[in-house]
Design a protein around this nucleic acid. Structure first.
Lengths: 344, 344
DNA sequence: TTGTACGCGTTATCAG
DNA sequence: CTGATAACGCGTACAA
């Protein structure tokens, strides 16, 4: 690959002049500029960002750590973050941890070695060891948490109002006449898992419905746990009249389980889910869900991170809380109550 | 961030010794090794990969360029590629182009500036300008194409046997008694788009069914085009008895369109799709599809690329062709022929 | 095993 | 406005 020296030599100028043309920071006479640009094109010159990073001590790279790239929730976040990064000429590097803390640690180490300018992190569920994250924060690298925030660490974050979203969704179920509402939670070692459960509890309590632990099934946000717990619910001696599932991946599993068990939604049971599958438009029945502002989560997170990096945001930790929006659809239409029959 | 010098000083050894401990290339006495490791931990030292890259002239980074991260086909490929990269300690950097050639060019330039050791590329549809790719290839950086290969450039690739996959799928439709089979193609400026159409044509020809251009609808692999063309088909004066859709994203659109038009699958029309939605298990009806080996595509692509980079693979371009597998499910069950009624 | 000079490609600084 | 040159942090190679 051509170097700045070769360009300079080809254009008959000094390397400093080439550098000035490329960066545009210091004006160069049109005549020389022209010659430089020609040499750049002729040699297919691409400035060596590595050398540049070494010198300026920043890489213009953002490290993003997410737990599950096969959950469509995250690709949307990535798109948002990538868009913000692109606009401000940062490169986003995303690493997937498969919900494993050990991979999260490795990813963090790899990205710190690469000297990314900042981190966007959605943590994996774990036993609460966040030493690796605390270390990164202590090193002075800005961090913004996305969606999932570990406890006891004061950094920026962009999150969803999980409690409210869950509450409104369960309220809707109650309004539809449901008294016996099962919940399939996410990992309760995660704040978002607990918050959604909390919203569920609040909605029940408001309605004067007693909280029944036997209706609480703890999943892990992955499809297989939805499938497993869905089966468990379907084969209970007594079917609840509704299920509130705490994310869309698990809902896919639940749908399959119900289907195999011959339980029809919404005729036999109502289903509502936190989080939306982008492909839900093709589902039958259409799912009542709490849609999250995924793109925005990523976009705002990356924007905030870059502001921190560039010193445009100073002072204590900032938390941006985004609302989630309830969409009422077919899956909660008079279900399980045998008041009406619904055919998709 | 701590430097190798600080570690050396803290451990009371030379930087060369620290370097040797870290890299493990030259043995160091257990005693000193221990002291170095302690210092590393105490200082939370992370080797500066930037400086290292500048010296050794390789970054251990793989650049991946994909057209649509919201199409679940690609996250699976990313997982595969990332897995292969991780195992061989490379870092995968993925950039999404939103199917836009202009972004592809920018991505390529950015990654070349970053001096990635090689490229994994699934091209965006365009007017055939592949100068940017040819330049990258000419610069000596290894490239492996994934799934989508531009014409007229001799580089490695990992692809799917599209012709055969499509042919078998349409054959199945023919076997089910369909004579009038519409096709919603992908972008025909892409090889994969043309190949799937070719498979369709072959299957028809085998069966002695005349090829009818009026049944060919050109989409672009995105959901909205499926929706639009689905509507078009649904409102034709004469409904075909089956549709073969060339990828799953478009199928989601088609399903929605049929639904809105009151056309029921499989009762009124059969549907088969190339490519599988991972969430298809929750669909009604379950979709007959040609499943692609997505993870493998990514894994094999990245493995091959790293082999090239490390000189373990030499010689002319290699193409790995992976089979796609037909899964027959409910959406093609005796449809449109009014021979039977099927209720999901 | 250690010390150390050297170079990697760039940018920043300062002298012309 | 242009050019010469010293960093940036590390890996390598050598001599001690």
């Amino acid at each position: 690959m051509a170097t700045i020296k070769e360009v300079a030599s080809k254009a008959g100028v000094s390397i400093a002049t080439v550098s000035n043309v490329i960066s545009g920071r210091i004006p160069v006479s049109p005549h020389l500029k022209q010659r430089v640009l020609e040499a750049v094109r002729a040699l297919d010159y691409h400035p060596n960002h590595i050398a540049r990073s070494l010198k300026v001590r920043q890489t213009h790279m953002l490290g993003m750590i997410i737990p599950d790239i096969t959950n469509p929730f995250f690709p949307e976040i990535i798109r948002g973050a990538e868009e913000a990064a692109r606009e401000r000429s940062y490169l986003l590097i995303t690493v997937n941890t498969d919900e494993r803390v050990e991979r999260e640690q490795n990813a963090l180490a790899a990205l710190r070695s690469r000297r990314v300018d900042g981190f966007l992190i959605a943590i994996a569920p774990g036993d609460g060891t966040i030493e690796h994250i605390r270390n990164a924060a202590d090193s002075g690298t800005p961090i913004v948490f996305l969606d999932r925030v570990p406890p006891g660490i004061g950094v920026d974050s962009v999150v969803v109002d999980n409690v409210r979203g869950a509450r409104e969704c369960v309220r809707h179920l109650v309004r539809m006449g449901h008294q016996e509402i099962a919940i399939i939670t996410g990992s309760l070692s995660l704040g978002i898992g607990r918050q959604r459960l909390e919203g569920y509890q609040e909605a029940l309590s408001e309605a004067g419905i007693e909280y029944n632990p036997a209706l609480v099934f703890e999943g892990d946000f992955r499809e297989t746990s939805g499938y497993r717990l869905g089966k468990q619910i379907a084969f209970r001696q007594h079917l609840p009249s509704a299920i509130f599932v705490c994310n869309a991946m698990m809902t896919v599993g639940v749908l399959q389980a119900l289907d195999e068990a011959g339980v029809h939604c919404p005729r036999d049971i109502a289903l509502a889910t936190f989080d939306e599958l982008p492909f839900g438009r093709a589902f039958h029945p259409l799912l009542t869900c709490v849609a999250q502002p995924t793109f925005d989560l990523g976009f705002k997170g990356a924007s905030m991170l870059i502001d921190r990096i560039e010193g445009k945001l100073t002072g204590g930790p900032v938390t941006i809380q985004l609302p989630a929006e309830l969409s009422i659809r077919e899956s909660t239409a008079a279900a399980g109550l045998n008041r009406a029959r619904f055919t998709a």
